[in-house]
Simulated scan of single mutants.
Amino acid sequence: MLAAWYERNGPARDVLRVGEQPDPLPGKGEVRVRLRASGLNPSDVKARGGSRPVIPPRVIPNSDGAGTIDRVGAGVPRKRLGERVWVYNGQWQRPSGTSAQYIVLPSAQAAPLPKKLSYQQGACLGIPVMTAHRSLFADGPIRNRNVLVTGGAGVVGHYAVQLARWAGARVIASVSSGAKAAHAKKAGAHAVIDYRTEDLGRRLRELTDGAGIDRVVDVEFGANLPAYAEALRPDAVVATYASMKAPEPTLPFYNLMRLNFTLRMVFVYSMPPAAKARALADIARWIATGRPKFAIAARFPLREVVAAHELVESGDKVGHVILDIP
């Protein structure tokens, strides 16, 4: 099979290779997927850069993708053969991800892909949508709640806005530019705040008529908390999936304690099985009953995997980067 891989951590241009690798075969409880698209996430480029060690002898990167099941292992119903699927966590604690023509993985990690979605759209559904789902729904219903999505134009934020709106919340997104504001509004945000030009806490109180924020989905917890903490309501929940700028954040402990504040960390790779199952079920319902919007910033052929990694690392994009698998 044609695949992209690296044998050591380092810059994309130095370590990524493209060539032939052996076709994998499914084991017990596994399926083999003939991939047509691979979704490239920030965690994938960070892993290649060194956030996770190489699993010998090589790593085929990327965890998200979409394609068709062409082989099944023992214990998997043969009726799954030919099924269009999207896959997630493909390269978590495994050497072989979705930057290849084939992947084998547990049957449960290959979810049905509705006919109305393309393979490229299916490759968007893994880490970003499951992270957004967990952040929003892990702590109860959000109907009629005020939800703040920081980084509302980011890949996770884009789906958090959509899922929150689908679930009946009032959604406010924070962004850093006019173009990103338009992107968040298109996703369904009721209101957008440019945190570079506006006082985030004051605007949140204004937009909620003084009621404040019930839930936050936060892309940059340590840096963002001081800006919105004053707008949190009692029993507010902040769900965060990153804090790159302040990896060891400080908290106004007693102010938050008096609110009975809850902080939820979200790491999609190690979510409990029940949370993953609920996410898959709700995502399927959202696709069937909502109007999902996919923002694909760029598509690259597999042989241009270096350029794809470099674009994701640059941050100079709005939306997904997808590898097309021949």
Rank of each mutant, 00 (worst) to 15 (best):
Q121W: 04
Y119D: 14
R134I: 08
F137T: 12
Y88E: 00
G126S: 06
I127D: 02
Q109E: 11
V87A: 09
G90S: 13
S96H: 15
A111W: 00
H133E: 05
Q91I: 14
T131A: 12
R94L: 12
A123P: 07
R84M: 04
V87Q: 10
S107P: 06
G90F: 04
L117G: 04
M130P: 03
P141F: 01
C124N: 10
Q91K: 13
P112M: 06
A138Q: 10
S107G: 09
I142V: 11
N144G: 05
A132L: 11
Q91Y: 14
S96I: 12
L113S: 08
P114H: 06
A111L: 03
V129K: 02
P128L: 13
A138C: 06
A110I: 01
T98Q: 05
P95H: 10
R134S: 14
Y102C: 00
R143K: 15
F137D: 03
V85F: 02
I142F: 08
I142T: 08
K116C: 04
L125T: 02
S99K: 12
G90Y: 03
C124L: 08
V104H: 12
A123I: 07
C124M: 13
H133A: 06
A110D: 00
K115L: 09
Q93K: 14
I127L: 14
L136W: 05
A132S: 14
I127P: 04
R145C: 10
N144I: 00
W92H: 14
A111I: 07
P106T: 09
S118C: 07
L113D: 06
I103V: 15
K115A: 14
S99Q: 14
A108T: 13
Q93E: 15
H133F: 11
P114A: 10
Q91C: 15
W86G: 00
G90W: 02
C124E: 05
L125F: 07
I127S: 08
R84W: 01
V85A: 05
T131G: 11
P114Y: 08
L117P: 01
A111M: 01
C124V: 10
W92A: 14
W86Y: 11
F137Q: 10
V87E: 09
G97R: 12
G90I: 03
S107Q: 13
R134N: 09
M130G: 04
Q91A: 15
D139C: 13
P141E: 03
Q121D: 03
A138D: 09
V104K: 12
T131H: 12
V85E: 02
S135E: 06
G122F: 00
L125N: 02
R134K: 13
S99A: 15
P112K: 05
A123C: 05
G90D: 07
Q121E: 13
A110C: 05
G122I: 02
W86M: 01
N144P: 00
Y119I: 08
R84G: 09
S96A: 14
A111K: 01
A108R: 15
L105S: 02
L136E: 08
S118T: 15
